[in-house]
Amino acid sequence: MTVIVKKTTQLIAGIIFLYGIYIILHGHLTPGGGFAGGVILAGSFILLILAWGSDFLHLVREEQGSTLYENLAILVVLFLALSGLLAGVNVFFANWLPHGTPGELLSAGILPLYNIFVGIEVAASILTIFLALIIFKEEVLK
């Protein structure tokens, strides 16, 4: 790609990343949440990869990292769901943390934690699929 495209994506990708984090963290206050924010996070990475082209070894390392984070995040979501059993409430998916005042950033008990880890999981999944399509195509070409 030309210098103009590279510079523009460099400036924009960070803002898109911040917007995704905002959507995830405010998931219990405004429209959005883990799924929407996660896809936006993946979108900022995909924008950079499309504009800057693919360096093969770098992409392989990135794919290993995203696979790891995807699997860790889904495990953490499962343990959060199980934590209701361990915390003495004895209900799967219990919202056992204190609820706080509705409308504040730190409220809604355990829901923001679910949002954060589902967001990581979705972002890593979409990025892994995109990277796999590039990596294994170059593997065929070699």
Partner: peptide, 20 residues
């Protein structure tokens, strides 16, 4: 649920199994 956004409340609290 303590969540102002009703959709998040339903998705992660009432319908937690679906989301998992």
């Amino acid at each position: 649920t303590g969540s102002v956004n009703l959709v998040t409340g339903v998705v992660f609290d009432f319908r937690g199994y679906d989301t998992l």
